[in-house]
Design a protein around this nucleic acid. Structure first.
Lengths: 189, 189, 189, 189
DNA sequence: TATGAATGAGCATTCATTCAT
DNA sequence: AATGAATGAATGCTCATTCAT
């Protein structure tokens, strides 16, 4: 007999907020929408989260785990670090085809938040740093070059990924990702 | 004797809104802030702009002209198309050092606006399209390659620029731009 | 050769305001709508009318003339006073079928205006008084009864007309007018 | 010891709005006036009412109950249906003498509301339909005539009431009601 | 722990009117 | 006589947050 676990208030809030923050935007999403979709009383929510910003932080933490997991899973079958890195652009293309694609949730949220929302900014930086480390690690595994060089090479890949995502979101087309993949192949050659 | 031209309501509103929308963000900026900084009565403002969205459109139009102008001016002394393109990354570095640097105003505004603000989305797309055309034109001048190839090459440069900007904004560091410049030099070689 | 007389500012304002005040209501109609539809500059309009209330007064004056004229014309062919009075309910039925029918413009405007708009109230009272006089006159012509009795009888007709109009407007049906006509026939018998 | 029940936000809002909507008019009454007189915070009010229109609907519902109750109470002592119907005009006369008399709140509100305020229009129609049913019922009790005839007769009474109310409001005199009563007595004879 | 009710500050927008030319 | 530009006050409504139970 399978146990049906009822989601906790915290989980339901994060789930609803994740969907809304990503799909509609942080500023476009009101607290009332979140509690309504989460079926949670307002004061209950505020017992688990000090503020809207804190909900966003939880959303970003959860999204980070999930996104990195998806990426890893997508390139898992690739033979080596180089193929994994090239494959990461295929992952972006795959992701782009989601009906719910709205670009990078981390990029999006940082573009228009109150100046003092430092916790959100930190979370976004953390995500990009982790992604950067992930890239660096793969480069180091695949290339027998000095660490500094490897990291510089990895940074190129990261910049290409970021540019591909933001531009595909703006133009609502996929060519920026294909283009970035080509450049990545050149520099990884 | 020089004539001091008093700025019109429209000009003052655009000036104030430009500063605020860019520095603080579209959602963080209220109409009251704009009219207060522009020293304009609310109804006067609404005689010139139908809505907040329309002010943003005017801001983006003006910013587009200015930004492209600055870019052109910055790389004007460069001898050829290739140097101008590489120089465009130096322009980004130069721009980054502005005390007021907050990344790309066009990227920023598109990340969190109401779903129905199509005029703003159009303006952002227009800006990136114009920048893309600018790059394509330089490539075609500098390289004797088929048009298709030239445009594909130019797209690589555009993606690098976008990635450099968004990542430098997130990490509040300049290395993404230096990195993008290096990649650009590789693909333009 | 026919002379084309260009309408004056005053005439155009009254024409536009008449349409708008009657169709949409006094409060639902803004000064900007009026000047826009009249193709008149705002300050030009204010040179002819001190205030919105004054435009309404002009509208009511013009409407009074026109409405009484239409009523008179409609019952003109009737042989005698009694038939004219009964015919006045047929006029209401005819009027009700106008695509633009919105009830009595005089009743409507008095129901929701600022408490101090006395000039409008006066104009409405004047209209109903004139209509009352019109009815009284017909009764006196048709019935050889003392003046007091004639006027009392006429007042019954007026009350029936007013009730027929307001109720047909509320219920968006014509039966209140037919009903009022039946009562009128009874009391005029 | 009697318990003093503090009025709820909803009750205070309806109370204030009822006074203001009826006395000053729907358009003349602002949300700020309502919350000020109700001593309620704006957001508290909007937690109970979606919109100004919804407040008006609540006001009309409450007024309907009260008005019909008063009417019923006023004519309760009358021996039969006919006397009750004639007595309803005495009720109008009695009501007219209120210091706060401003005519029929239902007629008034329908004369100048935004075109899309359907809920208000529905409420007004409902009130008049209920009043019509009330009259029909009394007629059927008092007269041994076919149902159709009874209803037609009742409609005559309703038209007379409506005309009496609107005309007394316009002319600020009581004769329209006395006149309507006379006509009613004729048709009910 | 959970919650329904309440809130002050702010939102974008529209109003009828007046000023300067 | 005509007008484009400007305005203060008010509009209806929403925000994230806190209180009282």
């Amino acid at each position: 007999m399978e146990k049906i676990k009822k989601l906790s208030v915290k989980e339901r809030v994060i789930e609803a907020a994740s969907r809304l923050f990503y799909q509609e935007g942080y500023n476009q999403t009101g607290i009332n929408q979140i509690i309504s979709e989460a079926s949670v009383a307002k004061a209950s929510m505020y017992q688990h989260f000090r503020s809207k910003e804190d909900i966003a932080v939880a959303y970003l933490q959860e999204r980070h785990i999930r996104w990195m997991g998806n990426l890893n899973h997508f390139v898992a079958k690739k033979a080596n670090g180089k193929d994994k890195l090239v494959g990461s652009f295929d992952y972006l293309l795959h992701w782009l085809e989601d009906v719910d694609y709205r670009g990078c949730g981390f990029q999006n949220i940082i573009c228009d938040i109150p100046l003092d929302h430092q916790k959100i900014k930190d979370q976004v930086q953390l995500h990009k740093s982790d992604l950067r480390d992930w890239i660096h690690k793969l480069i180091k595994e695949a290339y027998s070059i000095p660490e500094k060089e490897a990291e510089a090479l990895g940074d190129e890949i990261l910049v290409l990924q970021e540019g591909a995502i933001i531009l595909s979101q703006i133009q609502k087309e996929s060519w920026p990702i294909s283009t970035a993949k080509i450049t990545a192949q050149k520099v990884l050659a």
